[in-house]
Every structure is written in C-alpha cells, then in structure tokens.
C-alpha cells in the first residue's frame, strides 16, 4: 500500500467514523448525540453559531473563490 492509498484510507476512516457515530446516535440507545444535536448545541451561542456559519462559508470560498 503506497502513501496515496494510505492517505485515502485515512479519509475513508473519518467518513466511516462519522457514519458509525450517526447510526449509533439515531438507531441505538448508546449515549452518543447525533450530529444535528451536536451542531444545535454548538450553535446555541451567537459566537458558536456565527463561527460555524463562517466555517461553512469558508469552505465555499476555499473550493470556488479567487
């Protein structure tokens, strides 16, 4: 396995982790919050809300903007 494949496996592991935690949160009684609950909680304060929205805007800028 070369470094290109190892890097991609790392990204896939992160995606798998996110999917697993979301399934645990929504389909089982394991005490894991869903991603939605996590975001709602983080966005409860104005600074948290604006910070996350700006992070979202930054993603758009990063991939598309000059």
């Amino acid at each position: 396995m070369n470094s290109h494949e190892i890097t991609i496996v790392g990204y896939l592991a992160v995606l798998g982790g996110i999917a697993t935690l979301q399934v645990l949160a929504t389909r089982t009684r394991v005490p894991v919050p869903s991603l939605g609950n996590l975001l709602t909680r983080a966005m409860r304060s104005r600074t948290g809300r604006v910070g996350i929205l700006v992070a979202w805007a930054w993603i758009g800028l990063h991939f598309f903007a000059h």
Partner: peptide, 9 residues
C-alpha cells in the same frame, strides 16, 4: 450532551 459520545465525535 453525554460526555463519552461528545468525546467520540
């Protein structure tokens, strides 16, 4: 939020 679950995230 449950601490363990939040830590896992």
């Amino acid at each position: 939020l449950p601490l363990t679950g939040a830590l896992a995230w």
